[in-house]
Amino acid sequence: MKAILFAVVALLAVCAPAFATQCHVNPVNIPKEWVTMHRSCRDSMRHQIQEEVAASLQYLAMGAHFSKDTVNRPGFAKLFFDAASEEREHAMKLIEYLLMRGELTSDVTSLITIRPPERNNWANGVEALEHAVKMESSVTKSIRAVISACESAKDFNDYHLVDYLAGEFLDEQYKGQRDLAGKASTLKKMLERHPALGEFIFDKKLLGIDV
């Protein structure tokens, strides 16, 4: 009995392609001359997307740290959770750009890998802010590397992408870095004499509460 069943199943499996239900529309070919991004440029963009995602996870870990009951810095937590969402949005913007240029028709699954953030503890708010400054600097550096790869591809300077990255991304990076560096300075100045109270007040300021 089992053997017969098995034979039937096997037969069906063999014949299946012959009268398979078509569940999708077959892909079509359209001219590809307009898809002009070069490989090295595309690869560095893909790498940058992963960088932004990794930054978003590291910021989540910062948010988690400052949310702890024993740390209790809701202002810092909010700052870093918001930063995490911002990094995610950067990744989305880069993806949108690739799509606009006719990319991401294949190899999409491998674009992003989720790895647990490297660091989970900071001694105080200043340390976290300084870490954030360093992180943003390295993101900026890697955006510059993308720009460089995209303007120097052989026989093809990708003017538009270069302009987009320099105009939108670098602009945001530099402003963001300045903001974090300013916050770190203000806090660090208070820390010398008033470590506990200084950070407490600064945290509430980040929440928008005047103490």
Binding site: L57, L60, A61, G63, A64, S67, K68, D69, A77, F81, A84, S85, R88, P116, P117, N120
Partner: peptide, 22 residues
């Protein structure tokens, strides 16, 4: 899902625990 991720992390810490991303 992203929104819920952040909300869950906050809830973990609300209960006095430490979030482990692994």
């Amino acid at each position: 899902a992203w929104e819920k991720t952040i909300d869950l992390i906050k809830h973990v810490t609300m209960r006095g625990d430490v979030m482990n991303f692994a």
